[in-house]
Each structure stands twice: as structure tokens, then as C-alpha cells.
Amino acid sequence: MSTGSAGQKARSTIRPHSETARHGPLRTFLHTVDGVTIDAAYDPGSVVYDTGRPPSGHLDDLAIVVAHGFTGDLERPHVRRVAGVLARYGAVVTFSFRGHGASGGRSTVGDREVHDLAAAVAWARELGHTRVATVGFSMGGSVVLRHAAQDHEGAHTDAVVSVSAPARWYYRGTAPMRRVHWLVTRPEGRLVGRYGLRVRIHDRDWDPVPVSPVESVPLIAPTPLLIVHGDRDGYFPLDHPRMLADAAPGHAELWLESGMGHAEHASDDGLLGRIGAWVASRARH
């Protein structure tokens, strides 16, 4: 499961930004550099455009790309809720990772998903947004870190938020993560994933093993980086966010949230609002 060539540009079928803005929400399929079709949606947010490209530096030139967690997709209620809150701060692009929802391919659980995110970010820029931020949860949180550390022509990010992400691969220290490993590595687990959780999982091991989130973090600077984690996360204990933050001293901002569990389901509207405000203030093109 190699990550492929960084820097290649994703393809999409879109309209120019002025037309897009007048027509409001969009739904389309994007195409990644490795040939996977990705289901994606665009919500212009609470800002209404009359004509032309939004003025640089204003709230309405910001797009927030949401990267969901494993077994999620853009139509899941918890993903729609996240998008709805973040839409108060700018336009929002949601998409389903490969193997999830209506997207093609099979999930590689954080490896080739970097290509999916790059396609979504490129779409946001092609729609005319001069500031684009990525906000990822759990698996999506690891993907936004790895994406920001790579060179993606036309698909770079101006701010990164990683929520409930692992710091290192192959972690089995909690019961939920042992269940995830069974789901991913065993044939019967992948059947449960396909028919019970609506996710199609690749049956091959990573080869080579992709760069880990903690190895990616030092490469993100000077792009603003926020790491968010709950002190009641049942999947990844607090050594994970602390390891991520320690990998970029003086650069990464760390929020340890009291009483919070894991990922989108545990991110209440107040936290999502604070994340949206942080993105709006930090993202600079």
C-alpha cells in the first residue's frame, strides 16, 4: 500500500467559482491520482456571493475540508453535523474516503487516503477558495497530518486540525483498537466491515509502511497546526496527542479536552465552533 507519487494533481469536473457560488451546494465525483473515484460535496456555508471570486482575506474565501474517521462517510449524521457547524466559518467540502459510502476502491486505513484528501483540497481551490484548511478525525486526523507534510501541487493546505488521531501505527493498547485490527486484518473482520459497517477494506498489508503521523508532524511547519484530543478517548490514550505535540515544539497547538471521548461523535458543537474559529483566524494563503 504505497502512498504513490506526491505532487501529482487530482482531477475533478467542476464549474468556475462565480457560477458555483450562485448555484450553491454541489455534489460530484473526484478522481485521485491513483485512479479512485471519490464522492464529494460542497456547501458554500452561510456566506452568499453575488458574483466573482470572494475577496482575499475575508471569511468567504475560506474552505474547510472535513476528513472523516474510519467507517464514516459524507452522508453519516455525525459527519453532516460536523459540516453544519463548520459551515458557519466558511465553505465546507466533505467527501467519503475510498472504500466508504459511494466512493470507489477499498480502504487502506490511512495510507492511500492521502490521495483522497488531496483531491478534495484541489477541488476547493479550483472552486476559487484562496484559503483552504483541513480538519480530520481519527483516521482522518492521521491523514490530514500526512497530507500537510507532503508536497501536493495545487492541493496544499493553509491550516491543519487533527482530532483524536493516533501518533503511531499498529497500536493495540486498547480494546477498541484490538477490535479495529481484527476488522482490518482478518477475512471475517473484513466481511463484517463490508456488510455491517458499509466499508470495503483492502486485504493486503502496507508495503511499504507509510510515514507515521508523528514522523509527519515536524514537516508541517510553518503551516498552523492544532491537535485536539479527549482525556476519555477509548481508542488512543493521551500519550498519542502529547507525542504529536512534542514532535513540533513551539509550532503545534494542543487542546486536551476534559470529558471528551473519541472523534466526531465526541466533538460537541461548542468544540467544533472553537475549531472553526481557530481555522478562520489561522488559515493564511
Results as ranks from 00 to 15, higher is better:
G193A: 15
L226C: 01
E19Q: 12
S258Y: 11
P77W: 00
Q150D: 09
P25Q: 08
P210G: 10
G276D: 09
Y42M: 03
T32M: 08
D151F: 04
V214C: 04
S2C: 04
G259T: 06
G270H: 12
S267N: 00
L191V: 13
A263C: 11
H147Q: 05
E215Q: 10
H31M: 11
A10C: 10
V279W: 11
H58G: 05
H147K: 01
E257C: 12
V192H: 15
G173Q: 13
H17C: 13
D207H: 15
P54Y: 02
G270K: 08
A280W: 05
L244N: 11
G104Y: 02
R80C: 03
V199F: 14
Q150K: 04
T3V: 15
V109M: 00
D269E: 15
A102S: 02
H265K: 14
L183W: 10
H240K: 10
V180D: 08
T37M: 04
A124V: 09
H31A: 14
R22P: 11
E153S: 15
A133D: 04
R146S: 08
L226A: 05
D239V: 10
H100I: 06
L254D: 00
A6V: 06
F236I: 12
L254T: 02
V79R: 04
S12A: 14
L271Y: 06
R11A: 08
D269Y: 13
A133H: 00
V279D: 09
R282Q: 15
D231C: 11
S281R: 11
A277F: 09
R131H: 13
G193Q: 02
A119F: 01
R172G: 04
R198G: 04
G250D: 11
G52K: 13
R186V: 03
D203R: 13
G101F: 00
L183V: 12
W169Q: 03
R22L: 14
R186C: 07
L256W: 07
R178W: 14
W278D: 02
G90W: 05
H115S: 07
L191K: 14
Q8E: 14
G273K: 12
G110C: 03
F70Q: 03
V180I: 15
F236M: 14
A221Y: 13
R274G: 05
H251W: 09
R125L: 12
A263G: 12
R81C: 01
G273H: 07
H285K: 07
G4C: 13
A148D: 03
S142T: 03
S267Q: 01
A148K: 07
A248M: 12
L254Q: 04
D246H: 07
A83R: 08
D61R: 14
R242W: 03
V144H: 07
T134F: 06
V161L: 08
V184K: 01
R179K: 15
R190H: 14
R131C: 06
